[in-house]
């Protein structure tokens, strides 16, 4: 099965990249952008199974995300 893991900074954690991109958009003439948060995603192809989603979540917690400052979300792709 194919899953996508989204990783982003937890709410409240400063996102310097998001802030810089927001500033760039403002300079470009989009003053209405109130907030930008950056993140990334990982596409994984893993063996099917009843616990596959839970296993991917564990992978995300152990490696893909830094749980001290980041949270993640797992999405099963069609």
């Amino acid at each position: 099965m194919k899953v996508r893991v989204f990783v982003g900074l937890k709410p409240g954690v400063l996102d310097p990249a998001g802030e810089a991109v927001k500033g760039g958009l403002h300079h470009l003439g989009y003053p209405d952008v109130a907030s930008v948060r950056c993140g990334k995603f990982f596409d994984l192809d893993v063996a099917d199974g009843p616990d596959a989603e839970a296993r991917v979540a564990k992978m995300a917690d152990q490696l893909l995300a830094n749980p001290v400052i980041e949270s993640f979300r797992v999405e099963v792709l069609p």
């Binding site: 310097p16 990249a17 991109v21 760039g24 950056c38």
Partner: peptide, 8 residues
């Protein structure tokens, strides 16, 4: 340098 932090 790191213009705009080179973040994007």
């Amino acid at each position: 340098g790191f213009s705009y932090g080179d973040y994007l």
